[in-house]
Design a protein around this nucleic acid. Structure first.
Lengths: 139, 139, 139, 139
DNA sequence: GTGGTCTAGACCACG
DNA sequence: GTGGTCTAGACCACC
């Protein structure tokens, strides 16, 4: 699970977790039946209070995106992965970023170049993840 | 001033204002010596309490980006507009957006297309603004 | 914490708080790691609105003198306690007082005597504080 | 007239003026019948809006410390100069200064030494004033 | 329990 | 008209 907390954003941590986990479920990065990292381990990796992780997981369960198997863990449920929905879910952060780039006076070309570069970095990081990635930041 | 509040983001309103205003100052959208929209007017436009706007303005003053002229208003101070700084300031939101797009399983191409479209919408909105200022949101 | 608000001074309450707290931190009356009186309690003791105290605390945080631990409280950060800085920080109010004494035509001897007396009263008050904390003003 | 504005104090300028002028009248630095510096000149010297000086003068007149002779200027009226009153009037700023020194952890000895030094500087400045002092800060 | 944010509305200082 | 301060009270996030 590729999660990144933005301490400067001002948004509550549990909310950042919910949004990112939800995105990965809807986006298929977390596949049906996959087990979520345990509360304690994730809390350790993110250096966050376990209650915070627990709260986020709780909200995912309430929304029906995740299923709790007692004594075992949380698992991703079957979920509509409608491409239109996914694009819609991406719109908020993208608009936010476009706004900021615009306010900063970056040209469309500059902004697009930066965006593409950052996107590729993420892809690269995750593939490295997949190979060997025991227990360290970033998650 | 093109400002957009994201009620869903969880970040405090005054902080959203600070970040966006700071971006416009550094980005040159608000030029040196220009007067900021008055507290009361901006509060009215954004349908927000004047104290919230005032708090944001106060923080900008503390940071030295803005100067208060008593009884008159707030004015943009001289500020370094180093392009490198601007790109750096844009990085946070861009990375956030790239992350979300990636988590949602959007391809780089899809994401870039959406980003470009949103950026252009902003440019269009602002130019329309300039022509005829209908006294409505967005600001 | 020995804090005294001067209602007649015309200076905003939050600013009086900031200056006095800053002085105590730099002066070592509030030691490293010590927890500040909670917003609500201090507000109660000073008979002031909690937001006013909170605003003062917020400014101390912005200045880096104080650290917020979420859900726990505010704590004094490590800070240079250079004696020269302390004397410099004392100069403002001392000059102010000297000026007023001079303007009122008090001789140097008279003024010094009054100053010494007032200083000793403060020391006495604080030591009494330490022994038995009667839940009353002054703080 | 030896007047000093403290921009950092947060107290309104006109109030600082009132207090200092009042002190000089009660203290006898401004003697009976003496004419106050004109609004415009004082405003110029202090680099302050004339309305601010005017407001201060107006309040002195209301309090009966000063008399307006139309077309000529303001003059100091006869006023009780009870020494006890003068000491009382000095107490506020002195206590303020003692508090700050105490909060900063200055010893009584240190504080007294600083106070004495500042007091003497004022006396010296004023005597220099008396000799030749056309139009520059400090007033 | 901790601090933080926001609102609505009153009042002040300054030009 | 400008910005600023303060209050009272509601509600949130985190431990």
């Amino acid at each position: 699970m590729l999660l990144r907390l933005d301490k400067r954003s001002g948004a509550p941590i549990y909310q950042q977790l919910v949004q990112q986990l939800k995105a990965q479920i809807v986006g298929g990065q977390l596949s049906l039946g996959e087990q979520l990292t345990s509360v304690r381990e994730l809390a350790g990796q993110l250096r966050v209070n376990p209650m915070t992780v627990s709260k986020a997981y709780g909200l995912l369960e309430v929304e029906g995106l995740v299923e709790r198997k007692r004594g075992i863990g949380l698992f991703v449920r079957d979920v509509t992965r409608d491409p239109a929905l996914r694009r819609e879910a991406a719109e908020g952060p993208l608009r936010q970023a476009a706004l900021r780039a615009h306010q900063l006076g970056l040209s469309e070309q500059e902004a697009l170049a930066m965006f593409a570069k950052l996107y590729r970095e993420l892809s690269r990081e995750e593939s490295e993840h997949a190979e060997s990635r025991p227990n360290t930041e970033p998650v």
